[in-house]
């Protein structure tokens, strides 16, 4: 681990430590927040009890469904918009406004990737007498891949946001619903345990993707 990573770890640990001290010292009241160590303990208990297994499954299932739809339709939409520049120019303000929607995120990433395919690849394809489909699969897709990956990462993040927000409001199960339920019943222990669970889960997924992406990119960027 490099020096930067140690400093980063220190900053994060310092922040959590500060919260812990403030909570334990009473500067932050128990009704507002419980100490981070207690959140972790409560989370371990909650997971061990199996009480929220169904909700976890439901939320993850919804996220997976939303994510898959977003990536597939976003990619197709992006390719279509790229092929019709007039439609794209007309749709631009809409895309820019609603990119918190996972589907739009993927459209934008696809457009971005297709825009950055070097023009010389087209000429290379023609010197090899490649058909359009082969050019798309063998040259354009790998050339655009890093940008598509960015879209995939953001689509995961926004799928989580969308699913949890709608569970707060509309659902009768799922992690969002359970957090809202605990909040309404002043059950801070369960509430913070679940919040910690969601944030840790999303951060873990993001970090895993980040590491994977770095590994894929390393040779391509020559690092």
């Amino acid at each position: 681990m490099g020096r930067l990573a140690w400093i980063r770890l220190g900053v994060i640990a310092g922040f959590i430590g500060l919260l812990e001290i403030l909570c334990r010292g009473g500067a932050i009241g128990r009704l507002t927040m419980i100490p981070p160590s207690e959140m972790a303990a409560a989370l371990v208990e909650l997971i061990a009890s199996g009480a929220v297994d169904d909700d976890i499954g439901r939320t993850l299932g919804s996220v997976a469904a939303a994510f898959t739809l977003a990536v597939v339709f976003g990619f197709v939409g992006g390719v279509a918009l790229h092929a019709i520049p007039r439609l794209r120019r007309a749709a631009d303000p809409l895309l820019a406004t609603y990119y918190a929607v996972p589907f739009f995120v993927m459209i934008i990433a696809t457009l971005n990737g297709l825009d950055r395919i070097p023009r010389v690849l087209d000429k290379v394809a023609r010197t090899h007498r490649m058909r359009p489909l082969e050019t798309a699969l063998r040259l354009k897709l790998p050339a655009a891949a890093p940008y598509l990956f960015t879209g995939v990462k953001l689509a995961i993040a926004y799928s989580f946001i969308g699913v949890i927000a709608s569970e707060f409001i509309l659902a009768a199960s799922g992690l969002g619903y359970q957090i809202a339920y605990a909040y309404n019943n002043f059950d801070n222990r369960t509430m913070y345990a679940l919040m910690l669970f969601v944030l840790t889960l999303v951060t873990t997924i993001n970090m895993a993707l980040y590491v994977w992406e770095r590994r894929l990119q390393r040779r391509r960027l020559g690092r």
Partner: peptide, 25 residues
């Protein structure tokens, strides 16, 4: 350099999860 990955992680966090905390504060 220290902050960048932390910011990126925070950016993709579902911040809506934090709403009870905001309400309590």
């Amino acid at each position: 350099e220290v902050a960048e990955p932390i910011l990126v992680a925070l950016y993709s966090l579902p911040k809506v999860t934090l709403y009870p905390l905001i309400l309590l504060v």
